[in-house]
Design a protein around this nucleic acid. Sequence first.
DNA 1: TTGTAGGCGTTATCAT
DNA 2: ATGATAACGCCTACAA
Lengths: 356, 356
Amino acid sequence: MNSERIRSNPKNLNLEDIARKAGVSRSTVSRVINNEPYVSQRTREKVMAVVQQENYAPNPAARTLVTRRTRVIGVVIPTSIQLVFEDSAYFPALLQGVVDVTNTRDYATLLWWGNSEADEQTLYNRILQQNRLMDGLILASIRTDDALIAHLMRMKVPFVTVERPTTYHSEISYVTVDNVEAAENAVKHFIDIGRRRIATITGALNNPDGQDRLLGYRLALEKAGMPVDEALIADGQFRYQTGYEMTKGQLLPLNPDAIFAASDVMAHGAIQAIHEAGLRVPEDIAVIGFDDLPTAMQSKPTLSTVHLPVHERGFVAASILLDLIEGKTQETRQVILPTELVIRESCGTHLRPVSK
Amino acid sequence: MNSERIRSNPKNLNLEDIARKAGVSRSTVSRVINNEPYVSQRTREKVMAVVQQENYAPNPAARTLVTRRTRVIGVVIPTSIQLVFEDSAYFPALLQGVVDVTNTRDYATLLWWGNSEADEQTLYNRILQQNRLMDGLILASIRTDDALIAHLMRMKVPFVTVERPTTYHSEISYVTVDNVEAAENAVKHFIDIGRRRIATITGALNNPDGQDRLLGYRLALEKAGMPVDEALIADGQFRYQTGYEMTKGQLLPLNPDAIFAASDVMAHGAIQAIHEAGLRVPEDIAVIGFDDLPTAMQSKPTLSTVHLPVHERGFVAASILLDLIEGKTQETRQVILPTELVIRESCGTHLRPVSK
DNA sequence: TTGTAGGCGTTATCAT
DNA sequence: ATGATAACGCCTACAA
């Protein structure tokens, strides 16, 4: 009656079918495909032969129903389109890091990517509703004061964030870098090479990375006994356009001799504005960015910047998550990856040797 | 005995539980959550109240087991890391287009992303093995002569490609642009503005996009009655580094006065090489790229290029796929999206008016 | 070492 | 309009 539905896909065999063809029971086939012990070598081979021949693959839904595991993890990127598209090397690199792990350990990767701020809550609701699709989550660019985090913790869904959490520090696993120190080093470099009017273009300040990089800027100046001029701090939201506009409208009129941008794309925007104003980089204004995207080496002048191990960030986050899921780790883990200040042409060290 | 496993997550209610709390049967609850008719308004409200209160969400695996639908689609990107990372705006934009659709229509997006050529076959095998995880697939940068395509067709898995297929043209749904015409227009523009030694840097030639753009280059020259000098055709593989090296090593010694690059990143590499050789863009050599990535507007000079509707490509592909899955469309669909030649500084129109 | 049978949480088919 | 019950395909005690 409904037999045609059942076999509409000619190659949709199940355990029972394989068992029959191999002359054994379902359980035995199950044991074989799950590599369990207590199966004789002969039986195992006999079953495997049929499995190969029929190209049999177990039904993931049926499997999940009983094991309550999906071998799928989710990656959540609520960020709106503009940022992602512009600073477009970050998320691919992060995803690549994640995927390197999931590919190796045979998990699939579900992508939860928002498209606008307005839909953020909708996205979170969908994720929570569908949480049984995944064994765990990697959260990128999430505000940790968000309800999503609280829900995940309550529902005991394993997750790892790739930013420093703003709260629950020790109860959450995360992978980040020491943004404060990195920014501090960058600004300190400006000081070391004799720059005195050092401005900064900040990232989005509702983001821990943005906050910490600004803090590093302040600390470097304070430790050097230099005043922090709030007018030299421009809000760039991590975006090229804002970096350009803030430099042109706010910073250039104040005659800075150095600009530390909290992202490479903002640094490129700043350089663009500087050039349009008829000034030179690094002779008149030195610039350091943050991220070390491929474009840093391709621009003219090449961009000095803080190298962020983005791929590694995704790789480590995914590794921790899978360990958590598989019970290889019980406790949360917090990892701080190292950064490196990469000196290129835009900060002028090759012109004016360090005098320190 | 194993009751603690069953209820380890305190909030894992099932239909039965909801039914009991609402004083109805499982079937009725099922009807309500699936918005089926033949439920009295009163009953519906009573059930919904319990559903809301308990924050109940149906188990996707159980649902999939019987409906054979997952409400998940897969996006396959076998490309190796280098290309993706450099030409990094393409895939995010494509994905964003896909996700705009899946978010709206309440599907989830599974990302199958390869990491190296060597693993390509492994990736395909995993996808085929796990095909029941998804209702359909979007294939990016796939060689259509690949066994993957044949398998998917045989298994009747719905899919849409975002390149022109090299075979099965009418049996496959795809979304592409007229690469031949677009490239032809770009080269024709060079001819129109008086350039006579026009070189090209090709994309990967095992890729239909790469092939078609080269064909367009040839056609434009032929139609203008100009000879095609094979030495002026350099293989750039879509990559920045190759674009740079080919320009420096192969093209510049031949004194071209224009270069058509099959991707923006290669165009940037070419410009870098041109500058290093002490030549000017566009005065000495005009350059046109392909893609219209954000960097096209950010470089100096700004890059003339062919605008590729990448986001739309993903959007349309996903729309077609979901229509296919939901039976709204029976036949395959082939869509050719329009491109546009965007004139900026690098091709010199603003310096040398069109003389035609 | 192998087989039997129950249950995972739904949807779908019958009755009622 | 509602309820009972049989699949869906797998894993997993438990029995043999």
